Amino acid sequence: MRLSGRVALVTGAAGGIGAATARALAADGARLVVADVADGARTVAEIEAAGGEALALHCDVSDPVQVEAAVAGAVERFGGLDVLVNDAGISGGSSLAHETEVEVWTRVLAVNLTGTFLCTRAAMPHLLESGRGRIVNVASTYGLVRAPLAPAYCASKGGVVNLTRQLAVDYSGLGVRVNAVCPGYIDTDMGGYRASLGPEGQVAANARREAAAALQPIGRQASAEEVASVVAFLVSDESSFMTGSVVTVDGGCTTTFNHG
């Protein structure tokens, strides 16, 4: 129980990598705050069924008022905050830069990059008070290498990568370690690799899954749980000399720069 007695807030935890991370941290002994614009009741139920303790809170990470309320709710319920995982994110679709709507660009950066900043800003006083504060930002391989038709997403995740390094410089000496994970092609709903649109939709989802697997030297996609296990390591004391690290969990795809 590496995280016994600690309180963790995970954004985007109603599904995908966020939900898997919340379950992994709870399995390590943490008490969890599941924060998402979607209903986090299922994640909470899964944690409680396994003997853990969790609280679901509605939170749009692009809204500073909602972010402050979520952090305050965590502290009120559990008495403090030790871990923040900034996972909430959106893709923004596929387009050339000059064809990308300004509203799309603004929303993607608001959620992916500004949301990471807002959650960090709200949580930091409590993480400093904890004396064992940990932050993991979920970036992307698209924040490290090029990707076709994803200007807003690449810009936002590249920002998350460098924000992670900057935060590590400023706060590691104050007792808060900050790291990032960069997932590759993960088998989640966000990636469009699953579908609930009937047979035709599932055929399309399967084709996307096969294409993504072909881009990774390891020959398959990762599960959300495989990313979550890396996050759990980074917030534990086992990674005590790691800060400012950007860890790829990508099956080797960034070694080839073959992103389609």
Score class of each variant (00 low, 15 high):
Ser4His: 12
Val7Phe: 12
Ala8Trp: 00
Thr21Leu: 05
Arg23Ala: 14
Ala30Val: 07
Ala35Ser: 10
Ala35His: 12
Asp36His: 10
Val37Trp: 05
Asp39Cys: 05
Arg42Phe: 01
Val44Leu: 12
Gly51Pro: 07
Gly52Lys: 13
Leu55Ala: 04
Ala56Trp: 08
Leu57Asn: 01
Asp60Trp: 05
Asp63Gln: 07
Val65Gln: 14
Val67His: 14
Ala69Met: 01
Val71Ala: 01
Glu76Asn: 09
Arg77Thr: 02
Gly79Tyr: 11
Gly79Trp: 11
Leu81Trp: 06
Gly89Thr: 00
Gly89Ala: 15
Gly89Tyr: 10
Ile90Glu: 04
Ser95Gly: 05
Ala97Asp: 00
Ala97His: 02
His98Pro: 15
His98Ser: 05
Val102Leu: 13
Trp105Ile: 02
Trp105Val: 01
Arg107Gln: 14
Asn112Met: 06
Thr114Met: 08
Gly115Ala: 11
Thr116Asn: 03
Phe117Pro: 01
Leu118Ser: 08
His126Leu: 02
Val138Pro: 12
Leu144His: 05
Leu149Ser: 11
Ala150Gly: 04
Arg165Asp: 00
Ala168Trp: 12
Tyr171Trp: 15
Ser172Tyr: 05
Gly173Ile: 08
Arg177Pro: 06
Val181Ile: 13
Cys182Gly: 08
Pro183His: 07
Pro183Leu: 09
Tyr185Asp: 05
Tyr185Phe: 15
Thr188Tyr: 08
Ser196Val: 01
Leu197Arg: 15
Glu200Asp: 15
Arg208Gln: 11
Arg209Thr: 02
Gln216Asp: 04
Ile218Thr: 07
Ile218Phe: 10
Ser223Arg: 15
Ala232Ile: 02
Ala232Phe: 03
Ser236Glu: 05
Gly251His: 06
Gly260Arg: 06
